[in-house]
C-alpha cells in the first residue's frame, strides 16, 4: 500500500535564549494508507513536535515530510468554543476553509446523528459530558473530510473510565470511516489496543527505537476486547521495558 505519511531523516531543534533543545533527531518512519499507527515514547520526547510538523505548523530543519492527502488534527483537549453551539463547533473547520455548503452541512448533520449528538446540536459545550465533548471534537475534525487523522493524546484529559470507552468508540469511528490515523500517546495499553503498529520512540531527541506489528487473536478490533487477548500482556511488557520508565 502507498505510504500516506512519510518522514525521512527529520531533525528539528527548539531555540531559546537559554540554548538549543534537540526535539527530533534523524527520525524516519512511514504510515500506509488506512493504517492505524501509534507513537509512544517517554513524556517530553517530542511526540507533539512530530504531529506539528506533519500538520505543517512547524517546518523540519533537516530531512523531509511527505503527506498524501488532507490532514485532520485532534488536540489533547476538545477546545470546543463555548460561544458556539455543538453544531456550530462542528462546522468550524468548514467555515475556516470557506467550504460551508448544503452538502457539507448535511454531512455534518449526518455525523452528529450517527454519533449520538443530534439532540445536543443546539446545546452549549459546557452542557455536555467529557466523552460527548470529545466526540463533538472528532466530528469537527471529520467534517472537513480528512484522509489522515493526527491524534495528539486526545483522551488524556478524560477520567480513566470515560477514557477507555471514548478511546474504544473513537477507534471504531476512525476504522469505520477508513481513515489513516497516527495516534501519539504515552498510554501503552491504549496504543496496543487501537493500532496496527506501535512505534516506540527514545527519550529526547526522538528517534525510532523499535516498531511493533500488533496482531491480536481477538476476532473484532475493539479496544476493549483487545485488552483481553493473551498477546496483549506480552506486547505491553516488551514496550514497557523498551520505554525504560524510571520511577
Amino acid at each position: 500500500m502507498l505510504p500516506a505519511i512519510m518522514l525521512d531523516n527529520v531533525s528539528l531543534s527548539y531555540h531559546s535564549m537559554d540554548g538549543e533543545t534537540k526535539a527530533v533527531s534523524e527520525l524516519s518512519f512511514s504510515v500506509s494508507e488506512g493504517e492505524f499507527v501509534s507513537v509512544v515514547g517517554p513524556s517530553g520526547c517530542g511526540k507533539s513536535t512530530i504531529l506539528s510538523m506533519l500538520a505543517g505548523l512547524l517546518t523540519p530543519e533537516k530531512g523531509s515530510v511527505t503527506i498524501e492527502g488532507n490532514i485532520g488534527y485532534m488536540l489533547q483537549k476538545d477546545h470546543l468554543l463555548e460561544w458556539r453551539s455543538i453544531r456550530k463547533n462542528a462546522l468550524l473547520g468548514l467555515e475556516i476553509q470557506k467550504k460551508v455548503t448544503k452538502e457539507e452541512e448535511a454531512y455534518v448533520d449526518m455525523l452528529l446523528k450517527q454519533y449520538g449528538l443530534w439532540e445536543f446540536r443546539n446545546h452549549a459545550p459546557s452542557q455536555l459530558s467529557g466523552g460527548m465533548r470529545q466526540r463533538a471534537a472528532l466530528i469537527r475534525t471529520l467534517a472537513v473530510q480528512p484522509d489522515i487523522l493526527l491524534l495528539d493524546e486526545p483522551f488524556s484529559a478524560l477520567d480513566y473510565q470515560t477514557r477507555l470507552s471514548v478511546a474504544d468508540e473513537i477507534g471504531k469511528i476512525i476504522r469505520k470511516e477508513r481513515k489513516t490515523a497516527l495516534l501519539v500517546t504515552h498510554d501503552i495499553s491504549e496504543a496496543i489496543s487501537l493500532s496496527d503498529r506501535v512505534i516506540v520512540l527514545s527519550a529526547r531527541p526522538a528517534t525510532v527505537k523499535n516498531i511493533y506489528e500488533i496482531t491480536l487473536s481477538t476476532e473484532e478490533k475493539s479496544a476493549m476486547k483487545a485488552r483481553e487477548a493473551p498477546e496483549f500482556r506480552e506486547y505491553f511488557n516488551k514496550i514497557w521495558k523498551e520505554l525504560d520508565v524510571h520511577v
Binding site: L75, H79, L92, I96, Q97
Partner: peptide, 18 residues
C-alpha cells in the same frame, strides 16, 4: 487566549484574520 485554541484555527488552515 489559550495557545491551543489558536492552534485549533491554524490546523484547519486558518489565517491570522480568522
Amino acid at each position: 487566549v489559550e495557545e491551543e485554541k489558536i492552534k485549533l484555527i491554524r490546523i484547519f488552515g486558518g489565517n491570522k484574520a480568522q
